[in-house]
């Protein structure tokens, strides 16, 4: 039996060596390794052997089986690679990219922020672009004499009432009051969108740009909550530890009002041309919601307080992608749009 086994091993190897057609491989495999193949036959014989012979023959049987399987494995591999390389194939040929469009950079950043805020339980709201004086100014505690109301800052639209003219919203803040009216308190919401300022355009000024308003109203919201939340959010936006500072800033719809600065990423606070030697970059205005705004939203300022902030979405986009001319955002040039 020992000789039979060794002979079997030799025959199988020999047959595989002379093999040329891949189709024959399977036949040979069945012949030797199949359920009724030669090795299986040997197995049967083995079971009939006397106890004394078994250990030695058993070991050999195992060894032959492994050897034949190995030989098959080798030859199978060589067949597989041979099918590809037979076509004189050059792996250095360039890849063919599937065609795919892209989302506008402003919307890409907007979506990222929407996801971030949703993950923190904020509603994402959408407001009208043609607004009324009431929501854009009056409800936000911007009285009629305020400079923001002058036509040099605001696009006015024909129609509306003489005491409540129509305009293009100058910020996303009108949704603060609309949201409070619609959803009540407690409220966490952001409002991304297109806003308009009466302004001549150049590389850094646009009459049309994007903002994202944020509003949190609940019981006992404090300055401390505002700073802590802003810090968390900015870390979510910039994917890094952000050092922030608050300083006084005047916006009629918040009291107290702040400008929030972040420590300059470029110089780390020592001063460079990006931060105009200040070490800090002005990023967003924010503050505690003015009691008059809460009242306009139908919320009792004695019971509730809140904070609001305004992210300059267009500016964030320009910072992120190092875009040096704001007009590119609305220019529609495909050489620009294809880069994102």
């Amino acid at each position: 039996m020992q000789k039979e086994l060794e002979h079997l091993r030799e025959r199988a190897k020999e047959e595989l060596k002379t093999l040329t057609e891949q189709a024959d491989l399977e036949k040979i495999k069945i012949k030797y390794l199949g359920r009724k193949g030669e090795l299986a036959e040997m197995m049967k014989k083995f079971k009939e052997l006397a106890q004394a012979e078994r250990p030695k023959i058993g070991a050999l049987l195992n060894e032959v089986k492994i050897d034949i399987e190995k030989a098959f494995h080798e030859i199978t591999k060589s067949f597989k690679s041979a099918t590809v390389s037979s076509a004189n194939f050059d792996v250095t040929l360039p890849g063919i990219k599937p065609e795919r469009g892209n989302i506008h950079p402003v919307l890409q950043v907007q979506r990222e922020l929407e996801d971030l805020f949703r993950s923190m339980g904020f509603k994402v709201l959408d407001g009208p672009e043609v607004e009324s004086e009431f929501y854009n100014f009056e409800a936000l505690n911007i009285p009629s004499w305020h400079p923001a109301r002058e036509s040099q800052d605001t696009f006015y639209v024909k129609g509306g009432a003489s005491d409540n003219r129509l305009l293009l919203r100058t910020h996303t803040s009108p949704m603060q009051v609309r949201a409070l009216q619609q959803y009540g308190v407690p409220l966490r919401a952001v409002v991304p969108g297109r806003v308009f300022r009466y302004e001549a355009t150049d590389a850094s000024h646009e009459h049309t740009f994007w903002q994202m308003e944020g509003l949190v109203v609940d019981k006992d919201i404090s300055v401390s909550h505002l700073i802590a939340t802003m810090k968390e959010l900015l870390q979510g936006i910039f994917y890094r530890e952000v050092e922030v500072r608050l300083r006084p800033g005047y916006f009629p719809f918040v009291e107290p009002g702040f400008e929030l600065d972040i420590k300059c990423f470029i110089c780390g606070g020592t001063g460079c041309s990006v931060c105009k030697q200040r070490g800090w970059v002005e990023l967003l205005p924010c503050g505690l919601v003015h009691p008059k705004v809460l009242e306009a939203g139908g919320v009792d300022p004695k019971e509730y307080s809140g904070f609001a902030f305004g992210l300059g979405l267009s500016r964030l986009v320009m910072m992120r992608y190092k875009i040096d001319d704001i007009r590119l955002l609305l220019g529609g040039d495909l050489r620009f749009l294809k880069q994102f």
Binding site: G121, D218, S224, I227, T229, L246
Partner: peptide, 18 residues
Amino acid sequence: GYGKIPLALPKFPIEPSE
């Protein structure tokens, strides 16, 4: 000094946004 105010995140209920 705003910088001296300690930071604390507001407490919110866990609820999915509409």
